[in-house]
C-alpha cells in the first residue's frame, strides 16, 4: 500500500524542504532553497528515525491541517503552533505515534515563525534538479501545499521508538523580540565608510513586514559609503550601492540603495548590489524564526568563531542527542 498524507487545510505557506537543497544550479539562477531553520528541521527528522536531511514540511506563520493516510511516526519542532492530533494537544520536540486516518492540526505561531513536521519515511515528492526542496515563488520542486493535495511518503524504514530532544539541545528562541545575529565582514565592507561599518554592528535593525524566504528586509540607520563606492568605473552603475553583477552569498546583507535585505534560502543568486556583511551559516536558522517588527542586532565574529558555532549545531543535530521517553 502506498503511504501518503492528505492536505485538509494548507496553512499560510507549507512547503516540502530537504537538505542540502538544490546544489549545482546557482549558475543557472536556481537558489539552494532548503529549510530556513535547519537546526529544528534536522531534530524533527531524527525524532522519527529519518536521516536528518530527509524531506519534511516547513510551515510558515500558520500551520496546516493534515490527515495521515497511514500509521506513522511524526515529530514537530521549531515555532510553537500548538499542534493537536484529533483535537488533543501533542508535545513538540517529541516522537508522536499516529494511526491511519488521524488528523494533525497546527495553528498560528505563538513563538518563532516556522514549524517543521517530519514524518517517518520522509516526504517522497519527485525531486527536481536533484532535490525535493521547494522554491515556491518560481514553482521549482512544486509549490506550497494546497487543500486536497495528496503527498506521497517514503518507506517507514528506521521508525521505532519514542524520543525527545533535551531542552538544552534545542535552538533557543528570543523571548524579548530581539535577536543577536552573528555576522562576518565582507565581501564588500570596503564599499562602506568605516563609521557605517561600526554603526552596522551597534544599531538595532527592525524586520519589515515584507520579509519572506526570498529576503529579510531591515529598517535602520542610513549607510555611508567609501571612495570605492563613490568613485568607481561607470560599468558598476549609478548608485553607490551598485556593483557589476556578482554572485550573492547565502546570508549576505545586500544593500539596495539604502535598504538592507538579508539574502536567504530562496533569494536571488546574483545581482548588481553590494553585500557588505554576511550572516554566519550557524546563525541562519534564527532568521527563519524571526517575525516582522522584531529587532536584530548583529555581532561581529571571525571565521574561527563561525566554525565553532557550526560545530556546536552539528553536535546538537546528531542521533546521539535523542533521549528515549
Amino acid at each position: 500500500m502506498s503511504r501518503s498524507f492528505t492536505t485538509v487545510k494548507p496553512g499560510l505557506q507549507t512547503c516540502v524542504q530537504e537538505l542540502p537543497g538544490r546544489i549545482g544550479f546557482l549558475e543557472q539562477g536556481f537558489p539552494f532553497s532548503g529549510p530556513f531553520d535547519a537546526w529544528s528541521f534536522r531534530q524533527a527528522n531524527l525524532l522519527v528515525g529519518n536521516d536528518r536531511d530527509a524531506a519534511a514540511l516547513e510551515c510558515q506563520f500558520v500551520g496546516p491541517s493534515l490527515k495521515l493516510d497511514t500509521d506513522c511516526l511524526i515529530a514537530i519542532s521549531g515555532a510553537d503552533m500548538r499542534p493537536k492530533l484529533d483535537g488533543e494537544a501533542v508535545p513538540m520536540w517529541t516522537t508522536v505515534a499516529v494511526r491511519a486516518g488521524q488528523e494533525l492540526v497546527l495553528g498560528a505561531a505563538m513563538t518563532g515563525a516556522r514549524a517543521y513536521i517530519a514524518i517517518s519515511g520522509g516526504v517522497a515528492t519527485e525531486p527536481v534538479l536533484g532535490s525535493r526542496a521547494v522554491f515556491h515563488q518560481a514553482g521549482v520542486g512544486g509549490h506550497a501545499l494546497v487543500a486536497g493535495q495528496v503527498v506521497p511518503l517514503g518507506d517507514n524504514g528506521n521508525a521505532g521508538g519514542v524520543f525527545t530532544i533535551p531542552e538544552d539541545k534545542r535552538p533557543v528562541f528570543s523571548k524579548d523580540k530581539c535577536w543577536t545575529i552573528e555576522a562576518l565582514k565582507g565581501p564588500n565592507d570596503d564599499w562602506l565608510s568605516e563609521e557605517t561599518v561600526k554603526t552596522f554592528f551597534s544599531a538595532e535593525w527592525k524586520v519589515q513586514a515584507k520579509s519572506s524566504r526570498t529576503g529579510i528586509r531591515l529598517t535602520g540607520p542610513e549607510f555611508g559609503f567609501s571612495k570605492r563606492a563613490l568613485n568607481k568605473n561607470a560599468d558598476h552603475g549609478h548608485d553607490p550601492s551598485n556593483i557589476i553583477d556578482h554572485g550573492y552569498p547565502l546570508g549576505a546583507v545586500n544593500l539596495a540603495g539604502q535598504t538592507p535585505i538579508i539574502l536567504v534560502h530562496d533569494s536571488p543568486s546574483t545581482g548588481g548590489f553590494i553585500n557588505p556583511f554576511t550572516v554566519a551559516s550557524a546563525a541562519l536558522w534564527k532568521l527563519g524564526q524571526v517575525k516582522p517588527n522584531e529587532v536584530l542586532k548583529f555581532r561581529s565574529i571571525d571565521r574561527a568563531e563561525a566554525g565553532a558555532l557550526r560545530a556546536e549545531i552539528d553536535r546538537s543535530t546528531q542521533v546521539g542527542v535523542l533521549d528515549r521517553v
Binding site: 555576522a183 562576518l184 565582507g186 568605473n233 554572485g247 547565502l250 546570508g251 549576505a252 554576511t278 563561525a306
Partner: peptide, 15 residues
C-alpha cells in the same frame, strides 16, 4: 573577499 564562512568572491577585474 570572504562572503561569510561558506562563500568566497573572487574578482578578476572591474569592467
Amino acid at each position: 573577499f570572504p562572503g561569510g564562512d561558506r562563500a568566497i568572491e573572487v574578482e578578476l577585474g572591474d569592467e
